[in-house]
Design a protein around this nucleic acid. Sequence first.
DNA 1: AAGTGGTCTAGACCACTAC
DNA 2: TAGTGGTCTAGACCACTTA
Lengths: 255, 255
Amino acid sequence: MKDTDAHVTGADVPAAGAQGPLYRQIKDAMLSALAMGEWKQGDALPPEKVLASRFGVAIGTLRKAIDDMVADGILTRQQGRGTFVAAHKRNSHFFRYFRLQRKDGQKAYPTNALLTFRRVRASAAARDALQLGPDEMVFEFSNLLSLHGDVVLVDSVVVPDALFRGLTEAQLKARPSTLYNFYQDAFEVNVIATEERLSVAHADLQHAVWLDVAPGFAVLEVHRIAYSYHQRPVEWRISRINTTHYEYIGPHTGE
Amino acid sequence: MKDTDAHVTGADVPAAGAQGPLYRQIKDAMLSALAMGEWKQGDALPPEKVLASRFGVAIGTLRKAIDDMVADGILTRQQGRGTFVAAHKRNSHFFRYFRLQRKDGQKAYPTNALLTFRRVRASAAARDALQLGPDEMVFEFSNLLSLHGDVVLVDSVVVPDALFRGLTEAQLKARPSTLYNFYQDAFEVNVIATEERLSVAHADLQHAVWLDVAPGFAVLEVHRIAYSYHQRPVEWRISRINTTHYEYIGPHTGE
DNA sequence: AAGTGGTCTAGACCACTAC
DNA sequence: TAGTGGTCTAGACCACTTA
């Protein structure tokens, strides 16, 4: 049977209103399964053959959907072991979201110190970045990051209360791993994509103290919005970086 | 015949010393064909069926090789028309290498003015960036870029004499399209990948004049190395950007 | 040895383009 | 209408991991 509409007998694909390529629909269905928590970070997905029959498609089609999600950094594959939901561990993937290195090319994992923490009504800018309604609450906190013992960066983070219900200062101080890994573990919030905009700014009095520089010192300012499944914004962050000894690694297009 | 080694009768694949997946070998063979100038920028490649039989592989395998190169931005596909060697035209692809936009999100194509031009012995830094031997010559030139009528950026470009034999100031001033498109048209140098490192710097006297800012003004400094096929470095560039009204668009990981 | 993903085949039909 | 890339199938065998 070479019929393209073979999936009408599929168990999981929305047969009605199907649009676009099959593998795209499969990907969306898997994204929804992930968003609903069917598979959590670090979990192994069912084998490809099982998924293929569940969605009523050939294994090649199922693989194309997974290929996409692997390219997006949502899943990881390990030959002989299985396919897993990507976790924000301190592995090579870490540098997908942490793009600073020493100017001699040396990479390192940062150490953290929580500077501030509060729960407030979202500012207009925060509502805009996080697509929130009026009067919605957010958590705001800031972090000091050091590399090789040098203070390098201050993060100012805003996350919606609705997704991080009950977040406490103690939790943030005690988190064992990366921030995004903490979001996954404690709140099932999975960051799978970010947008960043960079410009030069000057340290205010507070940042000058934190970064141990003179007020007005020129810093690299990175505005980031982080997204979860289906482009849902889950974090807004402004990083202010002292680039005296460290540099930001831009996109490398191509191979 | 389901035999994996079916390609022994292939006409173009190096049968001896074959390594790694077949589609990878096909990709390398096509990369070499591109580097040797068999297909030039804008050209249509032969149909997939023809290429598949030329390399002695199934069409699916050939497609996987092309998929990779399309993802790398080396080729573009147009359904119903063919597969083409990517050109650096002023299309959406342009913003793959030009990552500035106004802070309100407005994108625009820059206008250019050539500031300096000379041919000199490569500095140590240039030899390092471009993997040149001692005493090799390079062209150095700088460009002033404006967006929406605002002076925004000064590029300092270094390219090896060996690849750009006979480059003249007049050619650079007269070039009708983008710099990378000019490299393709006039010298068959194809930029297919870049690496960038960003940090904050301060304008020297010369750059302050060019950018119409005070000396010492804090600018965003972007160090870029551009590569052609097989990771061959072909251009080294330092851009100094006034980010008062414009911002650099960072990588957006994920979908 | 059994199970997983990785690669590859040899087709089919579909959507789009150019003539 | 002919030719292109886009999608999909239904398998096969390989490489690797785990037990």
